[in-house]
Each structure stands twice: as structure tokens, then as C-alpha cells.
Design a protein around this nucleic acid. Sequence first.
DNA 1: AACGTCGCACTTCT
DNA 2: CAGAAGTGCGACGT
Length: 279
Amino acid sequence: MDKFVIKQWKNSENHKSERCEIKWQMEKDLVNSGDEGAESPRKKLKSDTGGGAATEPLPLLAEQEAVRGAEYSWRRIRAEGLDCDYTKLFTKSEADEIFVQLEKELEYFSGDLTKVLVFGKWHDIPRKQVTYGDLGLTYTYSGVTLAPKPWLPVLEKIRDRVTQVTGHMFNFVLINRYKDGSDHIGEHRDDEKELEPRSPIASVSFGACRDFIFRHGDSRGKCATHRLEPVKLLLGHGSLLLMKYPTNVHWYHSLPARRKVLAPRVNLTFRKVLPPPKN
DNA sequence: AACGTCGCACTTCT
DNA sequence: CAGAAGTGCGACGT
């Protein structure tokens, strides 16, 4: 399966580095991404000694324990107004297979749907994007309205696993593909008005392991009113990050550039989108 | 607010 | 240890 993944990747159009380097990185990413947990292994990342800190070692949450027994171990990520749970959703071999299938079957948006409107200016987004979900829903984001394509079996499989493990149902998924470490997404909150209020968002990742950073809204800028440390996670191959209310009220999140990452990552954020208002 | 890019200061790597 | 590379984050835009 690894060979298949690597072959698949070598046929991809987006890279400038040596093939052997890419192959090596891909192997490394896939090997490393299986069990890294939510906390960065890098020493510079603060452990929970300090102020707004974040992570405790793996207690199981009662309701999920009832559903899945000890099969999934969860890491709670907590800070003031931040409430997330992280677990490995798929085994490495399951995740490898799904990743190959996603790379083969997903059809990303092109043309106008690859741009966002900010301050009256159109920008190409530094990633690829597509939405799938129940037909009739729409999702509007920075000047672009995205209509979902119909569910694919592989997406239903992921969605159903998320439901099984979290007890939450989702009718929509926004998919972002980061071709390498230069692709990224800036700080934002998922506060679109067509999201069901207080519903959690389930973020499932495949491929390269990437840093993921939360910053408290009031800690940003020159006149910050709070001084909360950013909360930094690593999102690994086959992982699930469940972002629960009220995380998205006060915390911004981003996937920063990581120039040394050479392999692609595909991220799926499952959401509960309200049906369009009747007119 | 938006959410991207840019520039600069700082840190980490080699 | 010094220069290069990588990162964090505020400023800016319409």
C-alpha cells in the first residue's frame, strides 16, 4: 500500500523538489503520522504548565466510551472558551487506503470557486477546495457560495465513522487539499451563519502531518485585551479533531505554512449546515 | 469583520 | 558561530 501511495504521489503535478526527497518525506510522514497525538513532540511547545494551556493526557470521555469501548483514546484540548477532542480515527492501513482513494476520486473546484474576495480584492487561495454534501444546501465563505457535490462512498464511510465515534450527524463536508507545506490557510473562525448554532465541526486529516494553531481573538493585535498563549496541535494521518462549542466563538485557527513539508494533506471538515430559508 | 500578502524581528538550522 | 532558512505576527487593503 505504501508503494501505491508513493507512486500515486509521484504522478502528481505539484512539486519542485527531487523525486527521491519527496518519496523519502512521504514515507516519513506516513510513518510518523500514525501515532503522534495532538501535542507536538517538539520541545519548544509549551506543556500545560502555563496560563491558557491546553492538553491533558488521554482520559476517555464517558459517552464515547459507551459507544466504542476502549478502542479510541481521546485527548482533550481545553483552554478558556476552547473545547476540542482529538483521536486517531483510522488505523494507518485504513488511512493509507482512504488517502489513495481521496486523491483518486475527489474533484476539486476550479475557476472562480478557487478565489476569495477580501477587501474588494480577489485572491487565489493557497490550497485546493471542494464541498460535498446533501443536495440543496449551500455554504458561503468570503464572497464565494459553494454548492455541494453529491456524497461519494468514501466520504460516506468517513462521515459514518465520525458519527459512530462522536454521536453527531453531518450533512456537509468542506475539503481542503494542501499540496505541500507552502499551501496553508490563514487565521479564521468557522462562524458562517448557515452553520447550525453550537454544532461541532469534525476535522479529519489524511496525508502529511501538519501543525494546527488556535489563537484567542482577544489576544491578537497591538491592543490585545487578553494574553492567552496560542494552542498548538499536530494533526496526523487518519486523525479526528472535534471542535465543539464555543471554540469557534473566540478562537481563531490556522494551518500555517511549513516549508519543509513536501507531501500533500487532505483535510475534511464535516459540518451541520442549515437548510436554505424558504421563500 | 473579511483573510490574504508582505515585511521585519526573532529563532532555529546547518 | 555566522549566515541561511524558517517562523510568528502586526500592518495593510476596499
